[in-house]
Simulated assay, not measured.
Amino acid sequence: MKKLSIVVPCYNEQESIPLYYPAVEKVVHKMPVKVEYIFVNDGSSDNTLNELRKLQKQDPEHVHYISFSRNFGKEAALYAGLKATKGDLVVVMDVDLQDPPEMMLKMYDLIENDDWDVVGCRRINRAGESKLRSFLSNMFYKVLNKISKTKLVPGVRDYRMMTRQVVNAVLSVSEYNRFSKGIFSWVGFNTKYLNYHNVKRVAGKSTWTVWQLFKYAMDGIFDFSQAPLNFTLWLGLTSSVLSFIGIIFIIVRHWIFPQYSVQGWSSLVCIILLIGGLQLLCIGLVGRYVGRIYLQVKDRPIYIIKEKK
């Protein structure tokens, strides 16, 4: 009998955990697998860790948890959970039940009978979310797919079932700045996506703000595209060409129409500020890539475990 590992990142989810476990148990009991749960407490400030301790005592054979020394972020929690898995098949899902557990039955059937390596899920609508978040999400997928060779399916979730071979490939990508959606796509393998309608959280509130989602989107762009660097190159080249043309124009005008060669201080200051602003923009974009290299070469651990069961 195959073993199924379920990785569940948790951050301030004390209300969701007691509801999540029985809901998923109803589904996995319908599958011919042995199951293990790997909960990862990402430095929660509420009673999430206590809830995980209770759950582990309730079912010590199947439930395990990892607790970080502080909040390292969901990407670190996913990585730690995947490293701790021992199953032939691995599922990644959220604890708030926005990832419908019953879809695991279809995932398992497709992997076992149709020779898929990964079966993921994508939301076909974002009902219940603000229009701003939906708009920003849609724009992110459009922009990233235009500027990156690594394509993301719009609405794709981390929720997926993978074979052990795929999990090992994902773990081999041990970069410090992680963007799992991009990594899942980058490693390849035969992948199928199942569509579903958005599901509301069973309890609690999302800890993701619009600003955090924006920063997360920027991480994805900088991790999987060199378009910002190319932008600075073309911006600098265009600025140089236009400046050269402007210099020639000024010289020619001075000799042919000397009466029009009066210098304007305001226009000169505007040009200086424009060029200076463009230079700072380019330096800032390049600096983002240099900063990511700096974090990588320091070789700090992606996470630190304080408690593990």
Rank of each mutant, 00 (worst) to 15 (best):
C121N: 04
R126F: 14
Q212C: 07
A203M: 06
F135K: 12
V167H: 01
S180E: 12
K215F: 08
K151L: 08
D223E: 14
S134G: 11
L229V: 08
W211F: 12
L171V: 09
H197F: 08
S137K: 11
R157W: 01
A203I: 07
Q212V: 05
N230Q: 13
F189P: 01
Y196A: 06
N230R: 15
F179D: 02
N168K: 14
V166C: 06
S130V: 05
R126Q: 11
G204L: 05
F214W: 10
S240R: 10
S130G: 14
S137T: 15
L136H: 03
F184Q: 03
G236L: 09
V170I: 15
R201I: 03
A169C: 07
R122I: 09
G220I: 03
Q226E: 10
S206C: 10
L213S: 10
F222L: 15
S137G: 15
G236E: 14
K149C: 05
N145I: 08
Y159L: 01
G188S: 09
Q226V: 13
S134A: 15
S180H: 13
Q212S: 15
M162H: 02
S137Y: 00
Q165A: 15
R123G: 04
M218D: 03
K200W: 00
L213F: 04
F249M: 11
R201L: 10
S206H: 06
Y159N: 06
S240K: 11
N145D: 11
S172R: 12
V143C: 08
G236P: 00
R164C: 03
R157Y: 00
S134W: 00
V173S: 04
A169K: 13
G128M: 04
R133M: 11
G220A: 08
A227L: 05
A203R: 07
N198C: 12
F135C: 08
G220E: 01
N138F: 00
R164P: 02
T150L: 02
S148V: 06
M162C: 07
S206K: 05
I247R: 07
L132S: 09
D219A: 07
V166D: 02
W234I: 14
T209C: 06
D223P: 00
V153Y: 04
G182T: 06
L152P: 03
G236C: 10
G220S: 06
V187I: 15
G188N: 07
G128E: 04
I147A: 05
M218Q: 14
T238N: 08
V167E: 01
T163N: 03
S130N: 10
D223N: 15
N168D: 15
S174F: 01
L152V: 06
V241W: 05
T191D: 04
K192E: 05
C121Y: 00
I248T: 10
S130Q: 03
V153P: 00
I248H: 02
